[in-house]
Nucleic acid binder design. Sequence first.
DNA 1: GATTGCTTACGAATATAATCGTATAAAATA
DNA 2: TATTTTATACGATTATATTCGTAAGCAATC
Lengths: 125, 125
Amino acid sequence: MNKTFRPTESELEILSILWDKENATVREVHEVVQKTKDVGYTTTLKLMQIMNEKGLVTRNVSSKTHIYTPTLKKEKAQEQFVGKMIQTLFSGSTSQLVMQALGKHKPSDSDLAEIKSMIQKLERK
Amino acid sequence: MNKTFRPTESELEILSILWDKENATVREVHEVVQKTKDVGYTTTLKLMQIMNEKGLVTRNVSSKTHIYTPTLKKEKAQEQFVGKMIQTLFSGSTSQLVMQALGKHKPSDSDLAEIKSMIQKLERK
DNA sequence: GATTGCTTACGAATATAATCGTATAAAATA
DNA sequence: TATTTTATACGATTATATTCGTAAGCAATC
């Protein structure tokens, strides 16, 4: 079994910061959050405490300043959100999602090459 | 200018039904909603009334039973959600999203061919 | 040792989303 | 025409998410 987490918008923002840094203190996270949102320190603290209760993160409490680590893996979250999006917005069609993404946000040439080789691999299956 | 709507989860579900049917009455929408969620008719009604206030849908009131039409276009919603997802979950990398999608949900051969031709078009740009 | 600053804990306020019950009117039907 | 069915309107409740103020403890600095 593998519980499916459904992080809220704010939680997702914090998670993406944690994914970036591997792990971090509330202050470190808050410093990044502040760049985009104007909220108080205790707001970020509270959110991270709630995320801990939900099991989205764990924390190391051995020193006064706690260190938070995400338990939900980035890949898992990507999988969940992409899957959900394909269902609700693209009528279950992966290719439609891919076309939309490529059309609106063109990747670099090397990225295109990478995608191409992936498609070739898929075709051989 | 072009206001960016941010439909909630329930609103998105209703929108996807409306996109499918072009337009529909509350009862028609509710019948589909009921297949997945166990909620009362007035809940669906209320949601659609709120969506009307927000401008997510318009409605034709000329007969007793109102007919609702989505104003937010499916393509626009796709664009918004895909863009947001690329930013928050894929560090701004379109190709990463594409790879994830292709890896987890393999499209049909004809869809793959379609994607391939799209890539070729992009390469020429 | 007293003061200042940083940290967590936690209750409470506020905002937003979702749900439903009831009233009322129109239409369908008995 | 009386009754039943179906629709909207809308207030109220409940659930969930977000925000912040304040208390208390610890540590660095004065």
